[in-house]
Design a protein around this nucleic acid. Structure first.
Lengths: 110, 110
DNA sequence: GGATTAGTTCGACGAACGTCGTAGTTCGAT
DNA sequence: ATCGAACTACGACGTTCGTCGAACTAATCC
């Protein structure tokens, strides 16, 4: 069962399209300290960051879980390159659907 | 025990000041369908709405709970008048702290 | 004094969430 | 072909969350 070779391209890495995104999912995704930290780091960089380069106080499996939630909500995108996955903010889509939301969150004092 | 007369002014009704509000609490408060519906109704009205006049699919005790969370996050204010409590959005404070956040949320397609 | 209306408070319950460790998969280098 | 690095997938666990009903308080009206 476990040992079989078919060479699947790692993971489908499914993201919602613009039309599939909901405010509630986005708000829920942002309403967690770890995920908010991830979004802040991605916003500060302006480009992509590998999972391992993200500064978060959780284990890797938990990080994976949080990134999955952010991805499913449409907040971030993942690009695979070798064994490392590069994550970036979907600024365009977020700004188009919920203009001001992301900037408002990032403008927060703390 | 229950029967004693001191006539307390109903409830302290404690709200955070501008400086006490955090993005995370606001996001968490907004990340629920019922509470989002409440905020939308308050925004649509532009002024205050009594608890009983809010259109939500939950019991009164649950409504109280949701309003309490919104109040503690600094999203809404409560004004007592007789036995009815009037709720209103803290637009000024929200816009000052997180410019664009509320508008972005309200601009959401669904 | 009741009776009524408007909200709140207090458990209680199940569902969802965040966290972890372990095991697994894929890729690249040796 | 073997090894290590980079993540992902799967259970398991404790905690928090949303929900309700029942009991309570406060103001208003008869």
């Amino acid at each position: 069962m476990g040992t079989m070779s078919g060479t699947v391209p790692l993971s489908p890495l499914v993201h919602p399209e613009r039309g599939e995104m909901t405010v509630e999912a986005v708000l829920r995704a942002l309403a967690d300290p770890v995920r908010l930290a991830i979004v802040r780091q991605l916003a500060a960089t302006g480009s992509e960051i590998a999972c391992g380069a993200l500064d978060v106080p959780v284990t890797k499996s938990t990080l994976t879980h949080h990134l999955s939630i952010l991805r499913q909500a449409g907040v971030v995108t993942g690009r695979q390159d070798g064994t490392t996955r590069f994550n970036s903010l979907r600024r365009n889509d977020l700004d188009a659907l919920f203009p001001g939301l992301l900037d408002g969150v990032l403008a927060a004092p703390r």
